[in-house]
């Protein structure tokens, strides 16, 4: 019983990261109907930036208050970095293809994804101490353990809750609430929802659709940048292939919640996190991918509108 509860807790914490990435997928899909394949790899690049900054600032050996301030700076830098890259890619790569056949932007996004992965490989080969001195570029990089991971319930306790878990969950929730308030309350958020419902009508109502799309890519990128720092701090190892797998899991989460549906992405992320943890515990870690992808296929076949059922309407 306690094992089950522990796995649920681990799954929930992991799920927060998937949820944050899934939000980026779902927001872009809601507006452009584009599976932004490169989103996971953007997340990976941001995690490499986070590691580089942590190394340059020397946070691994700094004292408590410095670490907190430094981490806030790293989060900010990564969010801005990922947001700007995401928007630039949209401007340069996807925007010229808005009127092209639907598969063209998807193929381009796959191209961007591979370019990002390759850049991640090169980044890992930079001659920095945190990157292992640039010797083995493809090897996993260890991310310093900046937040204490001692058990808050005491050393001998059977259930394990760490400060790290609480930081991950707490900060992710704050970001999600902020996003929700932005989308439901602000003027730009309203414009986003309108564009997602019907881009043409939104344009006729005087909404600058291009600006809305740019904003969507900025916000999705910033969330991925934030998730990248959280992921590095929580998992403590990053590698250049991380983006691909986590991106696919997050995409599964977005579909699970009903793609285009913002609260759905969060729910989906948590579900994926939990499914993953349970399958690792009860089926075996080597089957993890098969379980998640099997779920994705079954979901798309039987319930393509997702659990919460967003408005999936084939536009003819």
């Amino acid at each position: 019983m306690l094992t089950l509860a522990q796995q649920l807790w681990i799954g929930l914490t992991n799920g927060m990261v998937f949820a944050l990435i899934a939000l980026g997928y779902t927001m872009v899909y809601g507006i452009l109907e584009l599976i932004n394949f490169a989103h996971g790899d953007l997340f990976m690049l941001a995690s490499f930036l986070a590691l580089t900054l942590v190394g340059l600032l020397g946070l691994a050996t700094a004292s408590g208050p410095v670490v907190v301030v430094g981490l806030l700076g790293v989060v900010l830098a990564c969010a801005i970095f990922a947001a700007l890259i995401n928007r630039t890619v949209d401007r340069v790569v996807y925007r010229p293809l808005r009127n092209a056949p639907k598969l063209a932007p998807l193929v381009s996004a796959i191209g961007v994804s591979f370019v990002f992965q390759n850049l991640g490989l090169f980044w890992g080969g930079l001659p920095l101490d945190v990157m292992g001195g640039g010797l083995a570029a493809a090897a996993p990089k260890s991310f310093p353990d900046l937040i204490p991971s001692t058990n808050l319930l005491g050393d001998g306790a059977a259930f394990r809750i760490t400060a790290k878990d609480l930081v991950v969950i707490g900060s992710s929730l704050c970001v999600m609430v902020a996003l929700w308030l932005f989308v439901t309350r602000s003027r730009l958020g309203k414009a986003m929802r309108a564009t997602a419902q019907n881009p043409l009508a939104a344009r006729l109502m005087g909404i600058d659709v291009d600006r809305v799309i740019s904003a969507t890519f900025l916000i999705g990128g910033a969330l991925a940048g934030f998730a990248a720092v959280i992921y590095g701090l929580y998992v403590n190892t990053i590698k250049f292939q991380d983006g691909y797998q986590n991106g696919l899991y997050a995409f599964t989460a977005a579909v699970l919640g009903g793609i285009g549906n913002i609260p759905g992405a969060v729910v989906g992320g948590l579900v994926i996190g939990i499914v993953r943890a349970l399958s690792d515990q009860y089926i075996g870690a080597q089957w993890q991918q098969a379980v998640v992808f099997g779920m994705l296929i079954a979901l798309l076949v039987f319930r393509p509108q997702g659990l919460l059922g967003a408005n999936v309407r084939e536009k003819v």
Partner: peptide, 14 residues
Amino acid sequence: RWLIFGGALILMMR
């Protein structure tokens, strides 16, 4: 190779 192949996908589509 992936930088080149990925770049090729992007450029060809465009």
